[in-house]
C-alpha cells in the first residue's frame, strides 16, 4: 500500500531526476490521473497525450515546485492533471460558445454517491450542499467539465451577468462555509 508519505518522497526524488522514483510514481499514480483526465476530456487518445505531458513536465522540473507538507501530494497531482486536461479542452472547444449544447452533468458525481468520504471531501460536499442545487451543479460543472461562465449561462439559460453574479455569491458562501 502506497502511503501519502511514499508519494511525497517519490515526488521529491523525481525533482532530483531519480529514474526509479519516476517509474514508482507513475506506477502508483498514473491510473488515478488517467481517470481524472478521461473524466474531463472523455476522449482516450487526447487523454493519453495529456497524461504523457503531465509526467514529462513533472520530470522536467515540475516536481521541484511541490511544497512538502503544504498540499496533499495526491491533491497536488490531481490538480495538475485536471488543469492540463482543461487546458486541452479549451484548445478544442470554443471558449464562449453561447449556443453550445451543454451535456448533462454526470449523475455519478452526485453527492449521494460519495459514500466513503474523506474529511476534506465531506467538507466541500457539505458546503456545496448548502448552496442551491443548480449552483452546486454549476461549480462541479466548472471544475470537471471545464464550463466557463458563458457555458454555464447557456446551460442554465440565464444572461451571462446573472450567471456571474450567482456564481460569485455561491463562491463567497462556499468560502464562508469552508472557513467555519
Amino acid at each position: 500500500m502506497t502511503t501519502r508519505q511514499d508519494i511525497e518522497d517519490m515526488i521529491n526524488r523525481v525533482a532530483l531526476n531519480d529514474r526509479a522514483a519516476f517509474e514508482a510514481l507513475y506506477t502508483a499514480t498514473s491510473a488515478k490521473l488517467f481517470g481524472i483526465i478521461l473524466r474531463v476530456l472523455k476522449d482516450r487518445a487526447a487523454s493519453e497525450d495529456v497524461l504523457q505531458d503531465v509526467y514529462l513536465r513533472l520530470w522536467q522540473g515540475g516536481a521541484q515546485t511541490f511544497a512538502t507538507g503544504r498540499a496533499s501530494p495526491i491533491s497536488w497531482l490531481a490538480t495538475i492533471a485536471r488543469n492540463r486536461a482543461i487546458d486541452r479542452l479549451r484548445r478544442v472547444k470554443p471558449v464562449s460558445n453561447l449556443d453550445g449544447v451543454a451535456e448533462p452533468s454526470d449523475p455519478a458525481l452526485g453527492p449521494e454517491d460519495l459514500a466513503v468520504a474523506s474529511s476534506e471531501r465531506a467538507m466541500i460536499d457539505a458546503c456545496l450542499d448548502e448552496l442551491q442545487p443548480d449552483r452546486a451543479t454549476a461549480v462541479r460543472g466548472a471544475y470537471l467539465d471545464g464550463d466557463t461562465y458563458a457555458d454555464l449561462a447557456a446551460r442554465f439559460d440565464v444572461p451571462l451577468n446573472t450567471m456571474r453574479t450567482w456564481l460569485r455569491r455561491s463562491l463567497m458562501s462556499l468560502k464562508d462555509c469552508l472557513s467555519r
Binding site: 491510473a31 488515478k32 488517467f34 498540499a71 476534506e120
Partner: peptide
C-alpha cells in the same frame, strides 16, 4: 485548488495503456 481537487476523489482510476511510460 486543494478544496476543489477533492471533487476528483470519487473518479475511478483507469489503467493507462501499456507502453505509455516508455513513451514518456
Amino acid at each position: 485548488d486543494m478544496h476543489f481537487s477533492t471533487l476528483t476523489e470519487t473518479i475511478e482510476p483507469v489503467t493507462p495503456p501499456n507502453g505509455l511510460f516508455e513513451k514518456i
